[in-house]
Design a binder for these strands. Structure first.
Lengths: 179, 179
DNA sequence: CACAATTCTTGATTTGAATCAATGGCAATC
DNA sequence: GATTGCCATTGATTCAAATCAAGAATTGTG
């Protein structure tokens, strides 16, 4: 690369951020609870789910697929151990970027710092949308909202995980989809 | 002030950010839907609620009281018109800081930019907690989680708004509180 | 390719929170 | 400081989604 890459470009570039390519097989864990997340991942190919377990039930929080970044944000930012799992839904390739290298890059110039702020803004805004989704009372509306905003999700992710993400059972989601 | 104030100090300081003191009476609106939010507010005294209306029902998203800042973040950041209401729950005093002055300050030096990034980080993390709250199935657990994390909320905010925030009816919340 | 395992669908039943309804208590304001 | 509206509580009933239970379809794997 001739120019200094922006944050997203840098994340996938081995040269800039010492990222390490990792291949995950279906159902393999990238992270499990009790571990501190010291990496952020750029997803090259495949799909991942971030979830937590409560009263023996898995609750899906977020999905990532080709082109996205994913990490256990709380742990990554605070250094506390994570409460979450990150698991490959199918065969997946990620670039694993160490936190140190990531923040070294972020703080290395003004433009990167600005981009980092914007990244966090985007995150906060996405979370606000997510909050609206989850506040919506009827399962049917929750489904419609997410279907409209993220149709790709339904191509990439098995319905049973989406059902959990939508705060309903797979049975309910199935019935909704058949009118 | 002798030193350059940090972001939060600046927000309440009339000299730095041209903030304007505003007094709101009970139930008065600081913002209504369809309007672009060009301000961020530092709450000096009182309490505010941020909510939206869907199918004739109000849904509470967030509360703010003394020492907090509040704004309709999406509108504030993107310049699109807001879908939310911000309303005084009781007599309230805020410092109203124009977006332009706010970002002028933020971009004026490296330290402020860093603080802004951290502010957005905090926001994203709070939103993640909120997501967990909302994913929790049982009303009882949702209540417990929030009670534990934000006991002050129950001192500041009427129960009917908290019930909405907790995604349940006032009746259900009332029954939970009496064991 | 064929078998195994997982995921999705469909039906019957249960359950817990919403709704409907009424009363009591508190607080705002005149 | 009275009065009026708002807020919280309590009870009875309804209802929609969860659960339980098979079976069908799809997908992964040897």
């Amino acid at each position: 690369m001739q120019h200094r890459p922006n944050l997203l470009e840098a994340l996938r570039s081995v040269e800039y951020l010492k990222s390490e390519k990792r291949e995950l097989s279906r159902h393999e864990y990238l992270l499990t609870p009790g571990v501190v997340e010291n990496n952020i991942y750029f997803i090259e190919e495949g799909a991942l789910r971030l979830f937590y377990v409560s009263r023996n039930a898995e609750h899906d929080i977020r999905f990532g697929y080709s082109g996205n970044i994913i990490t256990s944000l709380g742990s990554f930012l605070t250094g506390k151990s994570s409460e979450y799992y990150i698991q490959a839904i199918r065969k997946t390739i990620v670039y694993q970027v160490p936190k140190t290298a990531f923040f070294h890059f972020v703080h290395s110039d003004l433009q990167s710092m600005k981009e980092y702020g914007e990244l966090m803004e985007q995150l906060a805004l996405q979370q606000l949308e997510r909050e609206l989704d989850l506040l919506t009372d009827s399962p049917s509306e929750r489904y419609q909202r997410v279907l409209e905003r993220s149709p790709q999700l339904f191509q990439e992710i098995p319905l049973k995980y989406i059902a959990s993400y939508l705060r309903m059972t797979p049975e309910t989601l199935s019935r909704l989809r058949n009118r």
